[in-house]
Computed example of a mutant assay.
Amino acid sequence: MSGKTFTFTVDGIEVTATPGQTIIQACDAAGVYIPRLCHHPDLEPSGHCRVCTCKINGRPASSCTMPAAAGMVVESDTPELNADRRTLIEMLFVEGNHFCPTCEQSGNCELQALGYLLGMTGPTLPYLWPQRELDATHPDIFIDRNRCVLCSRCIRASRTVDGKSVFGFEGRGIHVRLNVDGAHLDETTIAAADKAVHVCPVGCIVIKRTGYRTPYGHRTYDDAPIGSDIEARRAGRKK
């Protein structure tokens, strides 16, 4: 170990990190997957979803915002934490209108993939059936707010990568909704090539005329569970 690196453990696995890395960044590089939904490696962390919450030296904290430190003891893959994550995912399903069999993001959806990974066979909480707007006014993009999980990825990407600030939140509590900086999407400066369009983890922001080009059964999470690409990095190091 050099003077510029240090180690900590995650579920008993030694992870090497560098100063300035968060726990989830160091774990991703080391091939240790921690479930997440709002986190994206190309965006600044926000800690919105809390799915990545781990026990760090015995206390819960979001691993996407917590800086890694030498000697830190992190617990992630435990029955208690995975049960909490499953509840969070289930709440997102019942608070929105997620019709997986007819959603064109099925198989590419991170929310759906996390449900499978965490063993969610079906919601146990009552559905809320909200009435949310679909905005298809833009020639190349549509927004289905029924599928929005309020992860803020599009907001962060639009501001920090695209330099446009197209998206934002409005409302409070359960009435929070994704908003755009115009009466409708066609009045904004958003373009299909924008980063904000491509970081949505679900089927909320979709590019028109691209649906079903990859058939069901051949999509990202049809062949391998979410996080398997990260875990493969550690498997590769063992060979």
Rank of each mutant, 00 (worst) to 15 (best):
T5L: 08
F6D: 06
E14Y: 13
T16Q: 11
T16P: 01
A17C: 04
A17I: 03
Q21H: 03
Q25L: 00
C27W: 01
A29K: 15
V32N: 00
Y33Q: 07
P35H: 05
D42K: 14
P45R: 00
H48D: 13
R50H: 15
K55P: 00
G58Y: 03
R59N: 09
M66F: 10
A68K: 01
V73D: 07
V74D: 07
E75Y: 03
T87R: 12
I89G: 02
E90I: 13
L92Y: 14
N97Q: 11
S106Y: 12
L114P: 14
G119L: 04
G122N: 09
L125P: 02
Y127Q: 11
W129M: 15
P130W: 07
Q131E: 14
L134R: 08
D140E: 15
N146I: 13
R147P: 12
V149A: 09
R156W: 02
T160R: 08
V161H: 08
V161T: 12
K164Q: 14
G168T: 14
I174D: 00
H175C: 04
N179W: 08
E187D: 15
I190T: 00
A191L: 10
I207N: 11
G211R: 07
Y212E: 01
T214G: 00
D222R: 01
I226H: 13
I226T: 10
G227D: 07
A232K: 15
K239N: 10
